[in-house]
Amino acid sequence: MTAAPTPTSTAPASGSQSARQATGLLTYLLVGVYFGTVLVKSEAASWYRIQEMFRFQDFHMFGLIGSAVLTGLVTTTLLRRFGHTRDGDAVHVADKEPGWKRYVLGGGTFGLGWGLAGVCPGPVFVLLGSGVWGMLVVLAFALLGTYLYGTLRDRLPH
């Protein structure tokens, strides 16, 4: 009696895949904690720094935002040229659709919320972690705005 041949597979075992997924999640968590620390230490999450920026009293936030834009340009260019996932699949960065309405309306809404709250949505969780409990109101309205956008998306200009 002969043994049945075992199928060969290039897919990793489920235990190995779970370990890889957990490692990826831990990496994202550590990068997020590091990024949050950078936001707090650079004062990007400071209401006072944001007010200084909107009043054109200090260059600090403009420098931070400019460096973020430059970093985004460089990383997007590198992703388009050399990007791939951990599994080796190519990363495709789609070009933006032409038009100005979506950018003016979206940027205006974002800027209005930023000005009213005194904080960009990025550091909301960082500020909550720092004990600024007033950010719960900002988080609630950010979630409400996201829900409303999802509900009204088909009726909005894109």
Rank of each mutant, 00 (worst) to 15 (best):
Q51Y: 09
E52N: 11
E52W: 01
E52H: 10
M53P: 00
M53F: 11
M53I: 00
F54C: 00
F54N: 03
F56L: 07
D58T: 04
D58S: 09
H60N: 05
H60M: 08
M61Y: 11
F62S: 07
G63L: 15
L64E: 01
L64D: 02
G66Q: 02
G66K: 02
S67R: 07
S67W: 10
S67P: 01
S67G: 04
S67E: 08
A68R: 03
V69H: 05
V69L: 11
V69C: 05
L70M: 11
T71L: 06
T71K: 00
L73V: 13
L73E: 04
V74D: 03
V74F: 02
T76M: 12
T77D: 01
T77Y: 12
L78W: 00
L78E: 00
R80T: 04
R81S: 14
R81G: 05
R81Q: 12
F82W: 15
F82V: 08
F82Q: 09
G83I: 11
H84L: 11
H84G: 11
D89F: 14
A90F: 14
V91S: 13
H92C: 09
A94S: 11
A94K: 10
D95F: 09
K96L: 14
K96V: 10
K96I: 06
E97W: 02
E97G: 03
G99M: 06
W100E: 12
W100L: 15
K101S: 08
K101M: 12
K101E: 06
G106M: 08
G107H: 09
G108T: 09
G108I: 12
F110Y: 15
G111T: 13
L112N: 01
G113Q: 04
G113K: 07
W114A: 07
W114T: 12
G115I: 14
G115F: 15
L116Y: 13
V119G: 00
C120D: 15
C120G: 07
C120R: 00
C120Q: 09
P121L: 08
P121K: 04
G122F: 10
G122I: 13
G122T: 14
G122A: 15
P123F: 06
V124E: 06
V124R: 03
V124I: 14
F125W: 10
F125M: 11
F125P: 07
V126I: 13
V126K: 05
V126A: 13
V126P: 13
V126R: 10
L127E: 11
L127T: 04
L127C: 04
L127Q: 14
L128G: 02
L128Q: 00
G129P: 03
G129M: 02
G129D: 06
S130D: 14
G131H: 07
V132L: 06
V132Q: 15
V132N: 10
W133Y: 01
G134C: 03
G134Q: 12
G134M: 09
G134K: 13
M135K: 09
M135S: 03
M135Y: 05
M135C: 05
L136C: 12
L136F: 14
V137A: 12
V137H: 04
V137E: 01
V137I: 15
L139N: 02
L139D: 03
A140H: 11
